[in-house]
């Protein structure tokens, strides 16, 4: 996950995105190419409001994606749009410390979305949330996917995984043990042994 997003440099193998080898590209360069991520533990910019948090990728990543800086009016419109999509419109002027856990997760996704990615890596976006909050985030991710964004979801909550995935890859100790449609993968004996119990 960190190798994909450029936070860590991979010792072996290659990371290819949209037909291009990403070797040598830093994390911010990958974001600018359309590969955005959210963090497992929310990492908001604590001194900024929710709207200001979303403004950062709009200033630094979305401009590169479009080949020009966004105007101030465009940035304002995009902030309103992204926060609206994420259900954070009424939290725009709040500081991150005043947000609930689920809103904090949504802010993570909102910032990633503001970078206007074609691939979103959502790292355990539902960890620690209640059932209804999980449903909320899954619905959000499905909407993003329907809008044309590929989503890699790293998740342990099986309900969310089954609800969301079109393709399921299972890793154990860094090794891939299964890859395919969710129903098929869930019946895989090694997956049952490793994750679901026999």
């Amino acid at each position: 996950m960190n190798c994909l997003s450029g936070t860590l440099v991979n010792d072996t193998g290659t990371v290819r995105f949209e037909g291009r080898d990403l070797a040598g590209l830093t994390a911010h360069q990958r974001t600018r190419r359309g590969l955005a991520r959210s963090f497992q533990l929310p990492r908001p910019f604590a001194s900024m409001t929710v709207a200001e948090n979303v403004r950062v990728p709009l200033l630094y990543a979305a401009g590169s994606r479009r080949g020009r800086h966004l105007t101030r009016a465009e940035i304002g419109e995009r902030i309103a749009e992204v926060l609206g999509q994420m259900g954070l419109a009424d939290r725009a002027d709040q500081m991150p410390r005043d947000l609930t856990q689920v809103d904090m997760r949504k802010l993570e996704l909102a910032r990633a979305m503001a970078a206007e990615p074609s691939l979103l890596i959502a790292d355990e976006a539902m960890a620690g949330l209640s059932n209804s909050e999980v449903d909320d985030i899954v619905a959000l991710l499905i909407r993003l996917n329907q809008a044309g964004i590929t989503v890699i979801l790293i998740e342990h909550i099986m309900k969310a995984v089954m609800q969301f995935s079109q393709r399921l890859v299972v890793l154990v100790s860094g090794k891939k043990i299964a890859d395919g449609p969710p129903d098929e993968v869930m019946r895989h004996p090694e997956v049952e042994r490793a994750y679901l119990g026999q």
Partner: peptide
Amino acid sequence: DDELAAEANG
């Protein structure tokens, strides 16, 4: 505020 998050946000 958070260098890792800043880098991830472009």
